[in-house]
Amino acid sequence: MAITTYLEAINQALHEEMERDPNVFVMGQDIGIYGGVFKVTKGLLEKFGDLRVIDTPISESMIAGAAAGAATQGMRPVPEIQFSDFIHPAFDQIHNQISTLYWRSAGHWRCPVTIRCPWGGEVGGGPFHSQSVESFFVHTPGLVVVAPSTARDAKGLLKSAIRSDDPVIYFEHKKLYRSVREDLPENEEILTPLGKARVARQGRHVTVISYGLMFQKAMRAAEDAAQHGIEAEVIDMRTLLPIDRETIFASVRKTGKCMIVQEAPRTLGFGDAVAAILAEELFWELDAPVRRITGYDTPYPFAPTMESFYSPSVDTITAVIQDLAEM
């Protein structure tokens, strides 16, 4: 076993998959010589060379388009969009080309692209380096969208994504890069199944659903609530599309109460989709309204005081757990 950070787990996954499959290659801005702005791709250029570790121009549309073309020719590209805030120029390639290729070719063509996308706030990045943009892609049929919350799943989801024949958007949270770590076995292959959520904490009073940085906060909030005799069940979604309804339904049937915690703005976020599904399919088993804890419907702030106000806190999550449990 070795203590491994979230960032190191991603780097290990890239090394292992590039060693395993010569068709896997990485591309993006500053990922080669510089090793990535966060050093996630450090060491790849030295080990695999510049034909498989490709520094690109500052053109997200080109990065996504070139990856799509390579994927149709038998390669398994892993492009990096340096910050999720800058993925929008690539949206046409992702939404209209990559996500639809399998369907518009009647299953004859696949597009196994895994797009790595650093996302999220609480890093002092301001409005152009802190956004949560997952809702755009969860609303795009044909994609798989993942957002690991732990070092183990950061590694396991990336390895599974690269091996998948479906295009995957892999959201890696910048705040977790060096703040989350755990013991990972050195000689065990870690593969996390796509499309499967994980019950990270058992409970009986309230179901708390989250992902990414907010999952870490939800776990701390659940421990705080336990000091008051409230046992919250915490689900780490891991995959946002497709939604693992089975795991969610099993938990909510047990607790009768549910809350979703997301960093993204409130309106039309991932939590809205989960709340709608529960209202449509589990309404008569709910003992209270589904609650959402979210960011605000504003651009992400830069000032540290405003950033801490914008992002859901452990105390806020704990308070809502207690409020729901008492209903």
Score class of each variant (00 low, 15 high):
5 T>N: 08
10 I>P: 01
14 L>E: 01
16 E>N: 13
25 F>Y: 05
29 Q>S: 11
30 D>V: 14
32 G>W: 01
38 F>N: 03
39 K>C: 07
41 T>P: 03
44 L>P: 03
48 F>W: 04
50 D>M: 13
51 L>S: 12
56 T>V: 01
56 T>S: 15
58 I>R: 12
63 I>W: 01
64 A>H: 02
64 A>P: 03
70 A>S: 13
75 M>E: 06
77 P>K: 05
78 V>H: 08
80 E>M: 01
82 Q>N: 11
84 S>L: 13
85 D>C: 08
85 D>I: 11
89 P>G: 10
93 Q>V: 12
111 C>F: 02
117 C>L: 15
120 G>N: 02
121 G>H: 09
122 E>L: 15
125 G>W: 00
128 F>V: 13
135 S>V: 00
139 H>P: 01
141 P>S: 14
143 L>M: 02
145 V>G: 05
146 V>R: 10
147 A>N: 13
156 G>D: 06
158 L>S: 02
159 K>Y: 00
164 S>K: 03
167 P>F: 05
169 I>S: 07
174 K>C: 04
177 Y>D: 01
190 I>Y: 02
191 L>C: 07
202 Q>K: 15
203 G>T: 09
207 T>R: 09
208 V>C: 09
211 Y>L: 05
214 M>N: 08
226 A>G: 12
232 A>M: 07
241 L>V: 12
251 S>G: 07
253 R>K: 14
259 M>D: 07
263 E>P: 06
268 L>W: 11
276 A>H: 08
277 I>W: 09
281 E>P: 14
286 L>Y: 09
297 D>R: 03
297 D>N: 14
301 P>N: 05
304 P>T: 06
310 Y>F: 15
310 Y>H: 06
321 I>D: 03
321 I>L: 02
323 D>R: 09
323 D>E: 14
